[in-house]
Design a protein around this nucleic acid. Sequence first.
RNA 1: GGGCGCGUAGCUCAGUUGGCAGAGCAGCGGACUCUUAAUCCGCCGGUCGUAGGUUCGAUCCCUACCGCGCUCACCA
Length: 494
Amino acid sequence: MSDNEREARRARLAALREGGVDPFPARVGERSSIAEVRQQHDSSSEEALEDAKPRVAIAGRVKALRSFGKLLFMTLVDDGVSLQVSARKQEVSPEVFAFAKQLDVGDFARVEGVVWRTKKGELTVDIRRVEILAKSLRPLPEKWHGLSDVETRYRQRYLDLIANDEAREIAVFRSRVLTALRSFLDGRGFLEVETPVLQPLYGGAAARPFTTYHNTLDQQLYLRISDELYLKRLVIGGLDRVYEIGHNFRNEGISKKHNPEFTMLECYEAYADYRDMMVLTEAMVTEVAERVCGTTKVDFQGEKLDLAGPWPRVTIRDAIAEGTGVDILAAPDLPALQEAVRAQGLHPGEAPTWAVLVDELFSEHVEPRLIQPTFIMDHPVELSPLAKRSAEDPRLVERFEPFVAGMEIGNAFSELNDPDDQRERFTAMETAREQGDDEAHPMDEDFLLALEHGMPPTGGLGIGVDRLVMILADAPNLREVILFPALRRDGGTG
RNA sequence: GGGCGCGUAGCUCAGUUGGCAGAGCAGCGGACUCUUAAUCCGCCGGUCGUAGGUUCGAUCCCUACCGCGCUCACCA
């Protein structure tokens, strides 16, 4: 594809080299950040600058160029902060002026000059010396309309970051959320750990894994679908409070709430139970929101949310009863539950088991309504193979999921530490697997071995970090808070 | 995976009831010492997502494919 702009840039690159200028020098001379220069001079008056003629050196990317015959202005951006630069023919040698003039939008340059204010009052550095730091060979997205093609924004996120302030703000915001999460947990004595991404056996969630292969070990490996079983091994080993923030990989569909690799925060606290983890969840979300948003009252896609705890705690039984009129515990097997659903004028669908039907009732009739933060608790044991059985009702487990804005943002339980019960759960999962549930949890003898050595009563919590960021950033889509969201391999021109 | 929609210049978008494809920005040349979407004059720039088909003629109609979006399914 012929592109006369690229040719022009190539020509200027060649001209630089012919003139003995390295267009990609390894080192940058002394400089201040543009933010520093702004901080120092933003409030200086025209007259004060005229008297002091402060000399500064800055470096950045040329974002815009406005050229006149014997005068040119450019906007330089350095770490998201911009500053105008001028070159005036009367102030510099013809060579320096010509050098400034041949810079392209997108180039990186270092400029030494004198700080002044234009007639319009704009803080400006008037060039005395200028050097190129890196040549840009392709045009940047258009300056006024910017870059809006979502596919390009995701595939070439660097262009999005350059062209769209909001993309940059979200990236920074996300980093601040992660910092706040770590700070919260560190402050409570949690130890950040790292566990394997490549696992000989996956587990800790109901999901299909990605499969890979290690040549030297001659062994199939899985990309983890959760950190859970390894973090529990650490608790067994006496690391009483641990957390990990890392990617999980689930071989599933992509949607505005799902990315095949996503960031999960998991934390485990010995001697705690799921109610303690509820308190922890409320405190964590509250503190993070206050730190990154300055408030717990946030707008999310037109909904006003208040993230401050305490959050309502509703059993899944009560939630479904309220949403559908069906009492799941009064209909203890599949036929009874189907009948109860029909009695409410609803379609029971084709759920293969009682527990799956419960899950479907919840997903369809309750979940979308959970806008304000809510804990849904006490799930059926069949849906929760790693959670401790409820003392009051052996059909249920001590588990909760926090919901915000109709989205599940986490999952937590009193961890199952009875190795015999755990073995039975795995066996039940094996049966489900044999009956075609390819997301059922596999038997994990190695984990059982660990459990048999004794695990303290422990509370565990997982938080979907991407979704949390999405809510705090008021982003409409998970892809907006993931810098490089999963996309199909580019088929061509796009 | 199903349904619907989209894909035209580097970017943002028009457009053709089927008849040589347009604008703004960017780029190139020229004018210009206060612009910040600079302005003015001139110019360059396209396999109209890809491959077939229908047709005298396809960017437009048809089919398949590729990619993206929305949505349903799936998905803690």
